[in-house]
Every structure is written in structure tokens, then in C-alpha cells.
């Protein structure tokens, strides 16, 4: 049991937690923008799957990872565009249309996979890029600075998202559209345009989340390979109370507990595997229960669903 506090394990848990958190970060930061502007997108998982397949297929056939990334973003953006049209112009119920887009992406990605590839293959994806000097730092270097490029980008996204949301006019508009569309509208902010922007941005980032799995972390595509990850990402937005740093905390907590339970199994900690697998889900709820009552954060609990009448 003492093994669990050894340096190997701690480094292992942290570095694998960071890897696991990557797809969640892309998807959840994208979702944060959407919800901040008042749109709940439950179709994240579908966007991820299509992005994952598109990038995998393009990387495999052209040999270019950059094209793979671009196509994943494009596919995600197109899904976002459709979602925006349906929810903004047609005022469709957001949660349900999201489930529709999820099913569409789930089915379409598998269908394309079957038609274009037929069988599971691997691709040479983004490899680990140690950051000069920083990666030499003992322990920390190994944890943080020996990852692939998409991991770094995902973590850089957090301060960027925070900056955009809180320190720019665009962020102000997004927030005001989410808080009080009528007021925003009367001040000359185009609610529709802002929401189109955030939903398409969300789709783009979800596409990237998919690509980060299929051509960076796993280097493989399989049907339904996200297996619920997109829904967890949506949940993490609530955990983070619609703030990028909170989302980061949630993604790291969830992922690290997940890698901890993998380590517990490896170290033969005597608990049934099913119970170990439960831990990240359980702890996410518990931590939220424990913190929310203490941390009073009015900004946290804005009304992401409120589209106002």
C-alpha cells in the first residue's frame, strides 16, 4: 500500500491524468463558450466522433497530421453550424437537438469508417515533444513537459478562454447574451451572431477533442471510441461552474482519479475492479458537494440555459 505514495506512482498518476484530461478540456472549453452564451449542446460526443474519424482518415490517407487537424476542426465547425441553425434560427429545444446530433455523429462516423476503411488500423500520430529545458526539470518535467503537442494546446486553451471570456469585448458580449439576451439585444449586440460564433467554436473544439484522441493519444479509430466521454465533458462544465479554470480543475480531478484507480489495480489494492472504476464519477460528485457550499461564487451560477423571452 505504501507503494501508492512512491514517486513513480505519483508521477504516473499526474502525467497520465494530464493525458486523459486533454480531450475533456477541448470539448468542455468549447461547451463553456456555448453555455456562457446560453446554449446547451449535448451533441458534443457526436462532434467528437466525427472529428476523430475525419482526422484519422485524412491523416492516414494523406500522411499529414496537420490536414487531419484542419479537417477535424472543419467537420466540428460544420456540425456546430447545423446545430446553430437549428437552435438559433429554428428555436429547437437544445437538449433534444443535441441528442439528435449525437446520434447522427455516432452513426455517421461508424458508417464512414465501415465504408472507407472497413477495419481497425493504426496511424502514426503526433508524438511526444519534450519542451527544451522545462522537460529536464526533475519530476515536474516528466509530468508536464513530455507530452504531445495537442496536450500543450489543450492546456494553453484554458488561460486563452479565460482571457477571451473575461477581458475582451467579445467575452462581455457572450456573457451578456447568455445572461440577458434582451438587454444585450437592446444594446445592439446580435444575439444570433454571438450564438452562432460560440456554437461553431464549440463544434470546432469538439472536433479537435476527437482528433486529440484519434491522431495524438490513441492513434487509432474505432466505432464509438469516445464511449460517453463527450457527456462527461458537458458535466465538467457544470463542475467548473462555466469558468475555464473551474473546468480545468474538474477535468484534472476526474482524469487523475481515473488514472489513480488504474494504478490501484496495477498495485493490487484489494478492491473489486468495478468499484475502482466507479471512483472518478463518485469523487467528482463528492468534491462538488463539498466545495460548492463553501465557495460562494455568484458568477459561477449564471443561467446558461436561460435564453430569455
Amino acid at each position: 500500500m505504501n507503494e501508492i505514495f512512491s514517486a513513480t506512482v505519483i508521477i504516473g498518476v499526474l502525467s497520465s491524468g494530464i493525458r486523459l484530461a486533454t480531450p475533456y478540456l477541448y470539448a468542455a472549453i468549447g461547451e463553456t463558450f456555448g453555455q456562457r452564451s446560453g446554449v446547451l449542446n449535448l451533441g458534443v460526443e457526436g462532434q467528437m466522433l466525427l472529428g476523430a474519424f475525419a482526422s484519422f482518415y485524412v491523416a492516414l490517407t494523406t500522411g499529414s497530421l496537420v490536414y487531419g487537424l484542419l479537417i477535424a476542426m472543419l467537420v466540428g465547425a460544420l456540425m456546430g453550424l447545423a446545430m446553430a441553425y437549428v437552435t438559433v434560427n429554428l428555436h429547437a429545444e437544445q437538449g433534444i437537438s443535441g441528442i439528435g446530433f449525437y446520434l447522427f455523429g455516432l452513426g455517421m462516423s461508424e458508417l464512414l469508417f465501415k465504408m472507407l476503411l472497413g477495419t481497425v488500423e493504426t496511424v502514426k500520430g503526433f508524438s511526444v515533444v519534450p519542451i527544451p529545458f522545462l522537460s529536464q526539470i526533475p519530476v515536474l518535467g516528466e509530468i508536464f513537459f513530455q507530452q504531445n503537442i495537442l496536450v500543450y494546446i489543450a492546456f494553453l486553451l484554458v488561460p486563452v478562454a479565460w482571457f477571451v471570456l473575461n477581458k475582451t469585448t467579445l467575452g462581455l458580449k457572450i456573457r451578456s447574451v447568455g445572461e440577458n439576451p434582451e438587454a444585450a439585444d437592446s444594446l445592439g449586440v446580435s444575439v444570433a451572431r454571438i450564438r452562432y460564433f460560440t456554437i461553431i467554436l464549440g463544434g470546432t473544439l469538439s472536433g479537435l477533442a476527437g482528433a486529440s484522441m484519434s491522431i495524438a493519444l490513441l492513434n487509432v479509430f474505432q466505432q464509438n471510441m469516445t464511449s460517453g466521454l463527450g457527456f462527461i465533458a458537458v458535466a465538467l462544465v457544470y463542475f467548473g461552474a462555466w469558468r475555464p479554470w473551474g473546468v480545468l480543475a474538474g477535468a484534472l480531478l476526474f482524469s487523475m482519479v481515473n488514472s489513480l484507480q488504474l494504478w490501484m489495480q496495477v498495485l493490487n489494492v484489494p478492491i473489486p475492479s468495478d468499484i475502482a472504476v466507479m471512483l472518478p464519477y463518485l469523487l467528482t460528485i463528492i468534491v462538488l458537494v463539498a466545495t460548492v457550499s463553501r465557495v460562494r461564487s455568484p458568477a459561477a451560477l449564471t443561467k446558461p440555459f436561460d435564453r430569455g423571452d
Binding site: 457526436g46 447545423a82 437549428v86 429554428l90 429547437a92 429545444e93 433534444i96 437537438s97 441528442i99 439528435g100 446530433f101 449525437y102 446520434l103 447522427f104 455523429g105 455516432l106 452513426g107 455517421m108 462516423s109 461508424e110 458508417l111 469508417f113 465501415k114 466505432q223
Partner: peptide, 17 residues
């Protein structure tokens, strides 16, 4: 079966729209 999943998704989106 994937085609059917995708079709179901389309039906949901179209009907809700």
C-alpha cells in the same frame, strides 16, 4: 446498423426543428 443510428439522429433533429 450505423446508418440507422445516424438516421435516428436526423429524425430527432428534424422533428425537434
Amino acid at each position: 446498423s450505423a446508418l440507422i443510428t445516424a438516421l435516428n439522429g436526423l429524425v430527432v433533429v428534424f422533428v425537434v426543428s
